[in-house]
């Protein structure tokens, strides 16, 4: 079992059988492989890392080597090409998460996004009491050497969705063991470590407007 398996299990609960799926930053294709087996999905992965591409290809995944920052998604795919566009633990590493979300919801009918919560109390307390950037299991690297350049809290993310007229269809907030608890339910923004969001556009914008 992979450390991300529980997260992937939570995601697959949302995926309808035979869906067409695009996985942005698909890594070695574990999630797509899982979805193919358990939900008979079809579709593609996009990933920039060559080593991971090799593993994904050997798993039978159709993977397009691509940089998510280059905004090629709308060049490659037409509007509503996918039932789900998934991005797990990657939104915080891209250069413009807001534009990428637009692209996701242009080529997909629904988006699924997971990311670590910067507003978790442990992060806040390290900032507040020690005056230092958080470093822990979810955010393992120091500030100067991290791919996580756009960390946000659940509230930040939900504000962005609100601004963009994006509906949050469903949200799951879990701890690092990917378990929901009484705490994550009580105060998700403070006590939840990882969130899984299922989002869609409230009114689908015309394709030429979504990304200029």
């Amino acid at each position: 079992m992979n450390a991300r398996t529980p997260e992937f299990n939570l995601i697959s609960e949302w995926i309808l059988p035979n869906s067409r799926v695009l996985d942005l930053g698909c890594g070695d294709g574990t999630l797509l492989h899982h979805l193919k087996k358990t939900r008979q999905t079809t579709g593609y992965g996009m990933e920039i890392d060559p080593e991971k591409n090799i593993v994904a290809i050997s798993r039978g995944i159709n993977v397009i080597q691509s940089n998510l920052n280059s905004h090629e998604i709308c060049d490659y795919f037409d509007e509503d090409s996918f039932d789900f566009v998934i991005m797990t633990q990657a939104i915080q590493v891209v250069s413009r998460p807001d534009l990428l979300i637009d692209e996701m919801l242009s080529v997909g009918k629904e988006g699924i996004i997971t990311f670590p919560n910067f507003g978790h109390w442990r992060n806040l307390s390290r900032l507040f009491f020690q005056g230092r950037m958080p470093q822990n299991e979810t955010l393992p690297n120091p500030w100067y050497n991290t791919a996580n350049i756009h960390l946000c809290t659940f509230s930040d993310f939900e504000d962005l969705c609100d601004e963009k007229d994006i509906a949050i269809v469903e949200r799951k907030v879990v701890n690092t063991q990917h378990q929901p608890s009484i705490f994550t339910r009580l105060s998700p923004n403070l006590l939840g470590e990882i969130a899984l969001y299922r989002i869609k556009r409230k009114t689908k914008a015309p394709s030429n407007e979504t990304f200029a």
Binding site: T42, Y44, P50, N53, I57, I61, N62, V63, I64, Q65, S66, D75, Y76, F77, D78
Partner: peptide, 14 residues
């Protein structure tokens, strides 16, 4: 690749 994706073909690109 784009033309193949338009046809939902099985394609990988490196």
């Amino acid at each position: 690749v784009k033309a193949l994706l338009d046809n939902d073909a099985a394609v990988s690109y490196a």
